[in-house]
Design a protein around this nucleic acid. Structure first.
Lengths: 107, 107
DNA sequence: TGGTATCATGGCAATTATGCCATATCGCCA
DNA sequence: TGGCGATATGGCATAATTGCCATGATACCA
């Protein structure tokens, strides 16, 4: 049996942490359509520009995004093609909780 | 385009948050084999029993786990069958960051 | 060169997560 | 009934996250 190391799970937890914020999920969703500059994403998210910039840094550092400079603007694009299956599993969890929710999550 | 609501992303972020801890990922991994009681998982994780119990509560509340009581023991079992695709996408992100170059998503 | 627009970063306060201890609850058995 | 083992919960201290403000850095243009 392969005993997985602590780093194994820490690395995965770091990836999950990058996804653990509504604004970052909104950003990933938007970038599935096409690349966008920070200004576009700032107005989309509706937070301060510095806040959005930090969210983008988190997603880039985690490995989800890459950047492209064009003049004064920075365009972010999605680098992970499997987010669909990722989110469909998340959706399954949400549906599961919604179904069982009233019965199972109340104590 | 259909503008998704804030709750849409908040619900998904809550699911991701449940995955954003190494101990919880270890627990999910272990439960893919078979159901386990809290005492088993406590020794597996190597933390205080109350800590593990709280991790399990997080995973259950998020919709990943269900419980079965047998005498004084509580057995937790995995309720989400798609974690494999979920983690393979996480793995793709990790490889992407490690290479910082070309990495395909294994499906 | 000065001004403006776009992004990134430092710093700070407020919120949230984490982990352990102590303790409560539950099931079982002598 | 009393006691023990298995879990859950409250409380608290510490750490991490979040969001905004202020500011720095860069590109472009008049």
């Amino acid at each position: 049996m392969n005993k997985k190391s602590t780093e194994f799970y820490e690395a995965r937890a770091n990836v999950a942490k990058a996804l653990a914020h509504p604004s970052r999920l909104l950003i990933l969703d938007a970038l599935q359509e096409s690349e966008m500059c920070v200004c576009d994403l700032t107005s989309l998210v509706g937070a301060d520009q510095s806040t959005v910039s930090k969210h983008l840094a988190v997603l880039k550092q985690a490995g989800f995004l890459e950047t492209r400079k064009e003049g004064p603007m920075v365009y972010y694009r999605l680098m992970i093609p499997c987010l669909d299956s990722f989110f469909s599993c998340v959706e399954a969890v949400i549906l599961k909780r919604r179904d069982a929710g009233i019965a199972a999550c109340r104590r």
